[in-house]
């Protein structure tokens, strides 16, 4: 960086700082004009009582479900484009995008193989889909797409998994996948093994929900305080969201593949060693 560039960068930084400072002072002077209380927002983030969205005029659903549909549509478009225009042009020596796709597929495939070596084909595909869904749907929150609620208030679409229904769906489906793998490989024994982990769907569901919700709540708190809405959300909101996206995707996929590996593992019967018969006392005496 030469001297001119340094001066230019300094000026830009200074101007930005002054604007932010001025904004903070001005907004601090203005009386709080929020239309809803923070308690209401946070309560709704957990319970989804207030803000509902009308789904095609049929039913009222949580905004998280709309987010889930949006994510699926995004994936559908992306996958169609990739399938039609990119995959047929794949080369033996991959380019950057091909390398990225191969790495993603290979990452989950290897995770499935290493955690569940007995049956990994289905679980690899499942954790690939689950990982991609959790990661992208959490990042989706960052776009802040607005929808109109039935209450007439505009809300930003949240991450689908910050909706308890989405998290419970993910946890229960993962448990069903694990159970299905156990039954397919070990029959009744696999079913029994899965039943032993009866707390798994609850723990997975609420882990996801809690992690997503905590991020959403912290971000909501930061956004709610107007003074902090300058600059801080860039770090808090984006960083929290990105970290949650990656961490939760990693946690759920690892858990599912590990439990899947456990229930699909074939049990080898070890023949019991026969205990030597105790000699009768009478014989000992003789």
């Amino acid at each position: 960086m030469n001297k001119k560039q340094k001066i230019r960068a300094g000026i830009i930084f200074g101007v930005a700082f002054i604007i932010l400072l001025a904004g903070s002072v001005i907004t601090g002077l203005v009386k709080n004009g929020h239309s809803e209380e923070i308690q209401v927002v946070m309560r709704d983030a957990v319970l989804h009582e207030t803000f509902k969205v009308n789904l095609f005029g049929l039913i009222e659903v949580n905004p998280g479900l709309i987010s889930a549909f949006c994510v699926t549509i995004i994936f559908l478009v992306f996958c169609l484009i990739v399938r039609i225009f990119v995959i047929p042009k794949f080369k033996k020596i991959p380019g950057k995008f091909q390398m990225f796709l191969e790495q993603m597929v290979d990452l989950f495939s290897n995770m499935g193989k290493s955690n569940s070596p007995h049956a990994y084909k289905f679980v690899s595909a499942y954790i690939f889909a689950a990982g991609a869904y959790i990661c992208i749907s959490t990042i989706f929150e960052l776009f802040g797409i607005q929808v109109m609620t039935t209450a007439g208030v505009s809300v930003a679409l949240p991450a689908p998994l910050s909706d308890i229904n989405g998290a419970v769906c993910m946890g229960c489906l993962s448990y069903l996948v694990i159970m299905g793998g156990g039954i397919a490989k070990n029959g009744i024994k696999g079913f029994g093994k899965t039943l032993k982990e009866f707390s798994l769907p609850i723990s997975m569901s609420f882990r996801l929900f809690g992690a997503m919700l905590s991020g959403a709540l912290v971000t909501e708190l930061v956004y709610h305080a107007t003074v902090m809405s300058y600059g801080v959300p860039v770090i808090v909101g984006v960083l929290f969201t990105l970290l949650h996206a990656l961490i939760q995707a990693y946690v759920l996929t690892t858990l599912v593949s590990t439990y899947f590996g456990e229930v699909t593992e074939k049990t080898v019967k070890v023949p019991k060693e026969k205990k030597p018969k105790k000699q009768k006392k009478s014989a000992q005496a003789a």
């Binding site: 994510v71 699926t72 994936f75 996958c79 990739v82 595909a125 690939f128 889909a129 991609a132 869904y133």
Partner: peptide
Amino acid sequence: ILFAILYFLLY
């Protein structure tokens, strides 16, 4: 649906 899309079109 998402799983089917990802599996058949990408994975």
